[in-house]
Write a protein that binds this DNA or RNA. Sequence first.
DNA 1: CGGACGATTGACCCAAATCAACACCGGTGG
DNA 2: CCACCGGTGTTGATTTGGGTCAATCGTCCG
Lengths: 223, 223
Amino acid sequence: MTASAEFSQRREYCGNVLSQIFASRGTQMRFAPGTVIEAQGDPVASVYRVTRGCVRTCMYSVDGDRKVLQFLGAGDFLGLSGNEEWLEAQEAVDTVVLEAIPIEVFERAVASAPDGQRAIRSYLARRVGRYAALLVLTANTSALDRVRTFLQAFAGRRGTSDFVSLPMGRQDIADHLGLSMETVSRSITTLRVSGEIAMKGSAFFRFNAGSGAGTEGALPRAA
Amino acid sequence: MTASAEFSQRREYCGNVLSQIFASRGTQMRFAPGTVIEAQGDPVASVYRVTRGCVRTCMYSVDGDRKVLQFLGAGDFLGLSGNEEWLEAQEAVDTVVLEAIPIEVFERAVASAPDGQRAIRSYLARRVGRYAALLVLTANTSALDRVRTFLQAFAGRRGTSDFVSLPMGRQDIADHLGLSMETVSRSITTLRVSGEIAMKGSAFFRFNAGSGAGTEGALPRAA
DNA sequence: CGGACGATTGACCCAAATCAACACCGGTGG
DNA sequence: CCACCGGTGTTGATTTGGGTCAATCGTCCG
């Protein structure tokens, strides 16, 4: 298992229609690192598009256990599901800038746009694919594979040649991959020592060219 | 963690609009146990509604590892995501009867129905919630909790008083919960010996009244 | 400089995987 | 009717990957 389906989705299909809605009607908001953008269970009053920074989508169980379902970056949307309440919490990983639109305004804009509903459907379908990929990754693979796949997916998002920033902490990655913080740390060390990746500090990494064990996708293309 | 969010969603909201489309335009099809209804990666030519039986939604990785993402029962839909291809395989667990509609016919019907797009959006949102609940369940809980939660969710679907049929095999449950077949079997034995559940053969079970440790939902309502 | 928080590394342990044997059940054919 | 057989489920023995607990190290920042 060496996949990169999770982050490698294209945004062209639906992005344009929805992005235009946000571009014309959005209000800019800013959140400090670690702050809660929307809490789990709160009523959905606004929808958002990420302009800058990294957002983590979390789900908390009664025991206080946390699962990080996904990390969102520039261009991603929050709150399109049409639910009354936020099923998941949305939290700022680093400094986050969002475009916000009141839900009623957004719904009216979507209804009047020619492909509005279709765009939302496409976005939700991609989210299903993203979660499915995480379920597969989480179920059948070793800790090392999970971390490698995560890093590949995250690097694949951006330019791959230079060092990429890893804005979230080890605990965030651990809660995303279903591992402990220590195991994530150890896995990264293993990848570094074996030469697969290079680190600059603990928040910047890069895949080394030589040891390309597998860049071929394991999971089917999403969407 | 003792939840039952996975199966306990209401179908009223969107079910009606879509169900009517299937009722008026569907063609009945039958599949024998274990057969493939749609294979992963195939083009989506038809959409379906389950009339009878149990369908498992699977995802296969290149290694041949299988993850069972969900089990579908009467009233559930297949293929609403709008994707070009089947992201996941759809397989008959037992004898399955489906209503099928060619995709173009279905899309036209949805476009003309007043709340058609909205209904699909709601259905997809519920699927996101279902996968999220499975991710949380899979990440932070013991084998016993996973099996208990799965059985509770499955029982909650139907009438709870009498024995309920468990159409899928132990391996199916294992691949759903991210466990080995043996661990599933052992967990069921533990629940039986401790008196939480009663079994009739290996395919019928019932929760016993006395030992109600937790029926309160741990995860938020899926909406 | 010193405190604090995150990351790393080490030592140990346990829940569940794996490997293996056996029981059960339904079907088939002599 | 019973013997056989293959598939599924159960149970037992053993191993192991990663969790947990704990100490140390950086690094950022006041």
